[in-house]
Design a protein around this nucleic acid. Structure first.
Length: 488
DNA sequence: ATTTTCTTAAA
DNA sequence: TTAAGAAAA
């Protein structure tokens, strides 16, 4: 049980001057948080809440790696909040119910949040905003997770973009993204000095779940040692990582970003996923760093921001195609002749025992660290789809469960991109050769040896398929899709 | 964000 | 025979 008075989804009488509630979701940060900034400016006592919603319809359950990350992030956020004199309250349940309860317990006058872009999440938020407004409580939503709101970027014909380059050109042609907000100086905001304070609970007394009771961390077995070693979740770590990346790797990003053995990528994706850093913070810090660079190094900075642009594009596509994770964006692909599922092949892929060094290295990096270098993601995905002829959705699900950075847009978008079924996707005939990719991008087998210690010994598995044969089979299968009539 | 095969030109 | 570039998949 949580709370004393919270009983139903009904909100009590409105208290226009009542405390503020800031509902954090995919924005687990205090810096550059528009909802938090607006709440602080309202200048009423303020409570932060994170709620674990496993019951609202259509919300995709978090994967295992994501749950681990979330736990660490909430620990970090609670500490950062406390350091500013504030309090993070944890609750679990259907969002509409929990928010109504909290508003009631606090006698809150206003609720603030930053927007989400999945359909189920938007439906939840829209309904909550409507009931709050009806009850006379102010509900404000903000743009905190994307540089460009999906509905603001339109082609000349008024339709959503389906090709990245014109999309990003349109985004960057307009005014630059707003500069980031600083973190509030204090979250200990003054209460009402009048006698008739409407709040039933103060932030200090509002009941909170014990984070451990959510059981986000794996037990029996605890498989998270590799994650603990690889990552320090939290806003502070994100800022340090960004600064170190801009200082060190940014100038060589353009030439080395494809080499998985180099530390030339930012590794910021999980922090972006959870909003521990905002794209605005990345944009402006990179823009500043770019001014100190010339030639190829300056192009590296532009290229890095273009990668942030691909994330924007994935959300743009998700907004307009909510079932991105389950339905082919090009309906013609519904006719793809997937053969009966080969469970053994799928398992070999998941476990990194396919006998192809770069594929196995990537899959093992994923299992151990909860992440995988971008180049290798393309190679492992292409191998599953085109050499094993296994439906991209099964790969997407595995990544969803094992990646700390899996988000509802980039993960399915990337899989559909490789499959050829997506927006501005790789052409269907673009089949990666994992051995050639290994030779090109990991020529000294550094990355392979880091992740597959037995590679080159008798203990390393034999290849489970013939690359030439399976490539031809994939091309033959895609030939059927090419000729099939899309449903229109 | 490709690979393979074909063509041409040079040795 | 090989390298490089174009074309096809």
């Amino acid at each position: 049980m949580t709370g004393a008075g919270g009983s139903a989804a009904q909100t009590g009488p409105a208290h226009p001057d009542g405390p503020s509630l800031v509902w954090l979701r995919d924005d687990l940060r205090l810096g550059d948080n528009p909802a938090l900034t607006a709440a602080v400016e309202r200048d009423r006592p303020l409570t932060l809440v994170y709620l674990l919603d496993e019951t609202s319809p259509g919300i995709r359950p978090l994967g295992g790696a994501a749950r681990w990350w979330l736990h660490q992030s909430l620990v970090s956020l609670a500490a950062d909040t406390a350091a500013l004199g504030g309090r993070l309250v944890l609750r679990r349940g259907a969002a509409a119910t929990v928010i109504a309860e909290l508003v009631d317990e606090l006698g809150a006058g206003a609720v603030f949040w930053n927007r989400r872009y999945g359909e189920a999440e938007r439906d939840v938020d829209t309904q909550i905003k409507a009931s709050l407004t009806e009850a006379g409580i102010v509900a404000h939503s903000f743009a905190g997770s994307l540089l460009f709101e999906p509905w603001t970027i339109r082609t000349g014909g008024g339709t959503p973009y389906t090709v990245f380059t014109p999309f990003w050109r349109a985004c960057t042609a307009g005014p630059p993204p707003r500069t980031p907000y600083p973190a509030p100086a204090s979250l200990d905001l003054p209460g009402d000095t009048d006698a008739a304070s409407p709040a039933r609970s103060t932030p200090a007394t509002l009941p909170s779940d014990d984070l451990d009771s959510w059981e986000l961390e794996p037990r029996h077995p605890d498989w998270a040692d590799g994650l603990r070693e690889a990552w320090t979740p939290g806003e502070g770590a994100a800022q340090q990582l960004l600064a170190a990346f801009l200082d060190d790797a940014l100038p060589r990003y353009g030439t080395e970003r494809d080499l998985p053995a180099q530390q030339a990528t930012s590794r910021l994706s999980p922090y972006l996923r959870w909003g521990e850093i905002s794209p605005h913070q990345i944009w402006h810090a990179t823009d500043v760093a770019r001014r100190g660079l010339t030639g190829a190094a300056a192009s590296s900075a532009t290229r890095f921001l273009t990668e942030v642009g691909w994330r924007e594009f994935a959300y743009h596509v998700l907004f307009h195609a909510p079932d991105l994770a389950t339905a082919n964006l090009r309906p013609g692909f519904d006719a793809f002749p997937w053969p009966p599922l080969d469970e053994r092949a799928l398992q070999a892929w998941r476990q990194g025992r396919t006998g192809f060094r770069l594929v196995d290295a990537g899959m093992r990096e994923l299992w151990r660290t909860g992440s995988m270098h971008n180049r290798v993601r393309m190679v492992t995905a292409s191998f599953l789809i085109k050499n094993l002829l296994i439906d991209w959705r099964l790969g997407e699900q595995w990544f969803w469960d094992t990646l700390v950075d899996a988000d509802p847009a980039s993960n399915p978008f990337g899989w559909q991109w490789v499959a050829g079924s997506g927006a501005d996707a790789a052409p269907y005939f673009r089949v990666f050769n994992p051995e050639l990719q290994a030779a090109k991008f990991d020529p000294a087998n550094e990355y392979v040896r880091q992740n597959v210690p037995e590679w080159g010994t008798g203990a390393y598995p034999q290849p489970i398929v013939d690359l030439g044969e399976t490539r031809r089979a994939a091309l033959a299968a895609y030939e059927q899709v090419k000729n099939s009539r899309p449903v229109s």
